[in-house]
Structure formats: structure tokens, C-alpha cells
Design a binder for these strands. Structure first.
Length: 428
RNA sequence: GGAGAGGUGUCCGAGUCCGGUUUAAGGAGCUCGCCUGGAAAGCGAGUAAGGGUUAACGCCCUUCGAGGGUUCAAAUCCCUCCCUCUCCGCCA
């Protein structure tokens, strides 16, 4: 959510952001609703002041035994009470409408975000590593996985339906190994504190991070409860500090968490139907930061580097994409995607998305801090990034590390995590 | 799921039976000032958030877990819900 005063004073900036992000919101209504709301508040508050003063007077008169005088005021105040009730209802309506409008306004893109409409306008700012030249015809991970009998799509479909997969033996272990490895790197080398969050949250938390109200159709709601399955660990972790005023000394807060993620992926029908790239449930290691506004740019660059480190240690070729305005999403002011080389697609595919939300999420979730002992509170900046998506990393390892006879070499850094194993081979 | 107890400001804690003198006592902590060679103690002042208004100082409104109701007036009375603690049941 944007700051109300900011929107009031910078309506053109907001309109510009809407245009750049290729989205719309009832911004034309804003001025009218905002104005009416303030007008009503002034009226009702004046009456409330009168009521407060009269109530005190009534108390005094009653104590002095001047019941008749008191009754006179009471009679008069009955009308005032009715008026207040009426006006309060109107204020409430305008508050709700204003809130609705505010919730639909997207974050303002940072100055250096490239202009563009969609994915094709994203800018590659870095490539690392060379895609491997195969002297044989490489297999896709779904073929490798089935042939090695470590991915079972049929069983996944049988038990849960499309976009669910059983990982078996070495693949299952590789999944766990990667979670462990990534969390170890982030906690030991990058200074993040690990948390293990709830995988279900209530509605308020989904609003806090901005998944609702805009993306309801992408989320799973548990029937007959108020719970949503989390689409990312970002949701529970960011909401850990919802409606809190943090001490300056507590900042920056850096958390890393493993979680399963659940996404309905409405509208993705037909995309990436094969393999484990796009599943309704996947694992992810997520980094979340709460920082002072002045430090957020620098913290963001570090966050991206932290995610990159994982790919570098795994020796997987990747590139860094600077998301254009049209592909930024609703809540981000700046976003980089890390894309790993996938031989079967003959292109790079997203394994991490790193966003700087500035104060957008913090304002919605009411996460603040006090810059100086006597100063007013300010919203923190929140940042997050995958470090990394596990399933896609598994797929990337399978494809990039495959041998001519369909086996998979374990990346050097993972060998210890895989019980000293060098290779995944077919096992009966 | 059942029974009981509770939720008050940064923290502790009074007030709730019986609505008005509490626009929340008292204490602790914290900040600033006085005192001191320095410190402690002592003394004095300050000590929330959100909103409205204002050039600013300030003034005003709202908030006692949340929401609704009764009333001229609610921390206090009524209803619904949430959370915490204790015990029981169920369960990995």
C-alpha cells in the first residue's frame, strides 16, 4: 500500500506507475472520496467534541444535584448522538471505499527499472558460466527422471492430479540435500537467521504481504476454515512482524526459511505441463529482510548476490534479469529474476525472484521502527528473494549434470549432503 | 472438543461488582534538565499509535484483545468472536 499523503500529493506519479505497470485502478475516484471523507470527519469530530464536553458537564451537574439542568443537556444531546451515529456510518463507508482504492494501487517502480510491457522487455544485466556443450543429445529432466525411476509423474497424477509428482530415492534425497545445503550457506556464510514457518496462514496475513485481494485465484484456501496454504514463506515470515514497532537496534533482520509452497497457478494451463518446473506444490528456501529505508538498495544487491552464490557453488550457468515495469508485479519497486540454464528448453528458466518492496508491504502490514529515540516511527523496507526454488534446481542439476548414458553426476558441493555419493544411477 | 481463569499504555499493575470526580491511579524503565569533581541517590519535566486541522506551535477525534449493541455518556452493562494460561478429552 502506498502512503495516503503521498498519493494525495503525487497523483500523477501514481497514474504514471499504473501506466508503466500496465494495470489500472479506480484512481479517478480517489480525489472525490478523499475529499468527502475528510469533510465528514471534520463534521463528526466537532460533534464528538461537543458530546465529550457535555458529558463532563452532565456528570458535574448530577454530582451537584442539579438534575433538572442536567436533563436539559441530555435532551439536547440526544439529537447530537443521532447525528454522530449517522455521520459515523458515512465516514465508515468512505473509509472503506478509500481503503479499497488504496489497496488497488501498485507500488511505484524504482527510477532505474527498465520500461517495458512484458517479459520480452526484461533486461539481462549479467550472465555467469557457459551453457555446457553436449557431445550427445541431452535428455529433458522428465525423461531422465522416469528412466532412472526417480521421478514418478503417473503416481503423482494418480494420488493428487496434474502438476503433482513423487520424487523417489536419489531425487527425494537430492531435494532434501539442496534444502539443507542452501540453508547452511545462507546461515553460515551470509548471516541469515533460520526460521521454520507455519504453512497455513489466515486471511489477514495474506493481505499483509499483498497476495490478497488481487491474487485470490492463485491461492489455495482450506475449505470451512480461514486458512490459506502459503504460496511462499514470504507470507508467514513478513507477517511475523506485522503491527509491530521494531527497535532500531534490531535492524536489519535477515531470515531464511524452508517451506513448501502452494500455488493454484490459475491461467497457467498448458504451460510447462511436463516435468517438475511448474507444480501446485513445491519446495523453496526463501530469504526475507527487514531493513532501514536508507539501506534497502544496498541490502537488495546483497540479497541478489546471496542467491547467486548458490548457483555459483552448484556451478550452474545462469543469468540475471532486470524486470521491466510491465513485469514487475503489483508489490515490487524493483525486481531481479535469476534464471538457470536448462538444456531441455534450450534457454534460461527462473529459479529465483528477488524483490525490493520498499515500504509498500511494510505499510500494509504495519511494520515500523523508530529511527531515533524521540523520533516518529517509520515503515521499514522489506525485501525478499528465493534462495532458491528447490524443484527447479533439481531439474537444472539433472539436466546440466547428465551423462551420455543417462546418469546424473552430483555437484561437488552436494556430495557430502548426498552421503558421499558421486552419481545417480539406475537402481532396480 | 469440554470446564475454568485471564487479555488495561514500553513493562508491572489498580479500576470493572454499583456507568459520569480516571479524557486510565500507582510503580518500574527510558529520555531530558537540576544537583555533583564524576557517578549514585535525590529533585523536576517528559514518556503511545492512528486520524483531522494548522505555515508552525498547538488544538481536536479515536484506541483499555476484536467487532457489534444499550446509553446523553462505556475500561466498566449486554451479545458475538479471537488469543493466552490451567485442567480434561482426542491426537503425531
Amino acid at each position: 500500500m502506498l502512503d495516503l499523503g503521498f498519493v494525495r500529493d503525487n497523483i500523477d506519479v501514481v497514474k504514471d506507475a499504473l501506466e508503466k505497470k500496465g494495470t489500472s485502478a479506480p484512481i479517478d475516484e480517489f480525489e472525490d472520496v478523499d475529499h468527502k471523507r475528510r469533510e465528514l470527519i471534520q463534521k463528526v469530530e466537532q460533534l464528538k467534541q461537543e458530546r465529550n464536553e457535555s458529558s463532563q458537564k452532565i456528570g458535574e451537574l448530577k454530582r451537584e444535584g442539579k438534575d433538572e439542568e442536567a436533563q436539559e443537556i441530555i435532551d439536547r444531546m440526544q439529537t447530537v448522538a443521532d447525528e454522530i451515529k449517522e455521520l459515523d456510518e458515512q465516514v465508515k463507508k468512505y473509509n472503506q471505499r478509500l481503503e479499497e482504492i488504496m489497496l488497488q494501487l501498485p507500488n511505484i517502480p524504482q527510477d532505474d527499472v527498465p520500461l517495458g510491457e512484458d517479459e520480452s522487455d526484461n533486461v539481462c544485466v549479467k550472465t555467469w558460466g557457459e551453457p555446457r556443450e553436449f557431445d550427445f543429445s541431452p535428455q529433458a529432466h522428465w525423461d531422465l527422471g522416469v528412466n532412472l525411476d526417480i521421478l514418478d509423474f503417473e503416481k503423482g497424477a494418480k494420488v493428487s492430479g496434474a502438476r503433482f509428482t513423487f520424487l523417489k530415492r536419489a531425487a527425494a534425497k537430492l531435494e532434501r540435500a539442496l534444502i539443507d545445503f542452501m540453508i547452511d550457506v545462507h546461515t553460515k556464510e551470509h548471516g541469515y537467521e533460520e526460521v521454520f514457518p507455519p504453512f497455513m496462514v489466515h486471511e489477514k496475513s495474506m493481505y499483509g504481504t499483498g497476495q490478497l485481494p488481487k491474487f485470490a485465484e492463485d491461492s489455495y484456501k482450506v475449505e470451512d476454515t480461514d486458512y490459506y496454504l502459503i504460496p511462499t514463506a514470504e507470507v508467514p515470515i513478513t507477517n511475523m512482524y506485522r503491527e509491530e514497532i521494531l527497535d532500531k537496534e534490531d535492524l536489519p533482520i535477515h531470515h531464511v526459511a524452508y517451506s513448501a509452497c502452494f500455488r493454484a497457478e490459475a491461467g497457467a494451463h498448458g504451460r510447462d505441463t511436463r516435468g517438475i518446473i511448474r507444480q501446485h506444490q513445491f519446495n523453496k528456501v526463501e530469504m526475507v529482510k527487514f531493513v532501514e529505508p536508507e539501506k534497502s538498495k544496498e541490502e537488495f544487491e546483497k540479497l541478489v548476490e546471496n542467491a547467486e552464490t548458490i548457483l555459483q557453488k552448484l556451478e550452474l550457468p545462469y543469468r540475471v534479469m532486470d524486470m521491466c515495469t510491465g513485469d514487475l508485479g503489483f508489490t515490487a519497486a524493483k525486481k531481479y529474476d535469476l534464471e538457470v540454464w536448462m538444456p531441455s528448453y534450450d534457454t534460461y528458466r527462473e529459479v529465483s525472484s528477488c524483490s525490493n518492496f520498499k515500504s509498500f508491504q511494510a505499510r500494509r502490514a504495519e511494520i515500523k521502527y523508530r529511527p531515533e529515540p524521540e523520533a516518529n516511527t517509520k515503515h521499514v523496507h522489506t525485501l525478499n528473494g528465493s534462495g532458491l526454488a528447490i524443484g527447479r534446481t533439481v531439474a537444472a542439476i539433472m539436466e546440466n549434470y547428465q551423462t551420455e548414458d543417462g546418469e546424473i553426476v552430483i555437484p561437488e558441493v552436494l556430495k557430502n549432503y548426498m552421503g558421499g555419493r558421486e552419481k545417480i544411477t539406475y537402481q532396480k
